[in-house]
Design a protein around this nucleic acid. Sequence first.
DNA 1: CGTGATTTTGATTGGGGTCAAACGAGGTGG
DNA 2: CCACCTCGTTTGACCCCAATCAAAATCACG
Lengths: 255, 255
Amino acid sequence: MKHPEQELLQSLRWPQRRRSAAAAPSCLDCPVRRHCVPGELDDQDCGVIDRLVGRRVFLPRGEHLYWMDQAVVPKLYAIRVGQFKIYQLSDQGVQRVASFQAEGDILGLDTIGVAAQRCSAVALTNCVLCEFSYPRLTHAHLAHADILPQLDSLLSRALVREQWRALLVRDGRADQKLAGFLLAQALHHGASGQMRLQLYLPMTRQDIGDYLGMMPETVSRLLHQFERAGLLAINRRVVVIVDPQALRRLADGLA
Amino acid sequence: MKHPEQELLQSLRWPQRRRSAAAAPSCLDCPVRRHCVPGELDDQDCGVIDRLVGRRVFLPRGEHLYWMDQAVVPKLYAIRVGQFKIYQLSDQGVQRVASFQAEGDILGLDTIGVAAQRCSAVALTNCVLCEFSYPRLTHAHLAHADILPQLDSLLSRALVREQWRALLVRDGRADQKLAGFLLAQALHHGASGQMRLQLYLPMTRQDIGDYLGMMPETVSRLLHQFERAGLLAINRRVVVIVDPQALRRLADGLA
DNA sequence: CGTGATTTTGATTGGGGTCAAACGAGGTGG
DNA sequence: CCACCTCGTTTGACCCCAATCAAAATCACG
């Protein structure tokens, strides 16, 4: 036993480590299938999607999937395991975090029809990605008419999520934004509207601050303020939401 | 002559009022064609797009195109003339402005595959819209394979723009954000990378503040501070950018 | 011309940024 | 195995920008 955090990380992120290493991974038994490219498609269509996956990519923590200003390759990457940070580095060397992406999210939706990457993408944990070729997806539409509307739906939902995020990070006080961020993480990692109360936040306080538009000191102060108020239990980068209702009230500004 | 603002509005927004009223409007001679659905398609493909337009809709200032929580109809609306405000009304009655949309922008991209509208859309000026049926667009892909990738490209670019917006409104001080907003407006209304230095901002100071995450008093103060500094000339809702370079330096935080 | 909304200006306050320093964990090399 | 170094985190003190409250001025609209 190395460290409680690492142990938790394994239980959270690698629930079937041995099995998935032995069997070839498939979309059919993917735990985040519904959030991902297959969406609500049935098993048969999902099998079609599965055969469109070019390869599974393993990316260790700290490695970049792509860099800002790099030429775009027409590929999409669905995150099967792990978390990513999408960010820019301004010419003055200031980091601006555009988003965090986790299991079931799709990287590269913002590159269709543009020449160069706007952001860099770095793995915050060890990651497993499912690679799709965008031209192959488009071409597959001729045989399976459900594919392309599914892609449009993914793009549209990404747009909605981005809008929602933009609203989150600019409205209200710092504590409201942080509470909203934690709730968004809990909801996103939970299955079908359920919250996952035990969160692993692999990003630094600086990253969270850059994402929410506040200083890392403020993030730290607020987290411990939440802990003293009995809303959270914090152990380094592991956060347990103790009182989701109170956190929701705080995010909505009803405190 | 009613008011200088209205006169300018007409010259900005209704450049060919009589002609477009007489002749049936077409995408081929649309001034914002390149920003819109046709994109970089040639005249022939653009003609295909033009025939996909269901009807041109006239919407007077102050009218809503759709309301939050309304059931989604599978239609897209390209703005040919005018400007829109996309916003939410929280349950406490607080307005949250998601975005402003202008000529060439497309409304409804965030409704594909979702059940209910997330936001309301209200016309800030008299507007002319080009209505597209989303199912017809998808179906047209069989005959014209360029259509659907074009739609994906639109969605992707909308996503990029939304990300960029989210970065704008959370980074830096209030004056930097406002300067960035003005530059974004100027660039968006200009043709192909050129700025339109004469801007008409039909939204209220309150709207701008809600959009940028600041109080309307702050917007007012900063605008006049910019004017005193020789960056702008302001006449109510008409703003002329006098010193674009200085405004850019301010937005980049080099002041 | 009157009424209400919008815009502007001023005075005051507080939240969060800034600077600084101590603390802790993880990794490296001797 | 331990000393050391580096990076991330935490805590404290101070201060500034923008929110808040208030009110006057201006404009839009009937």
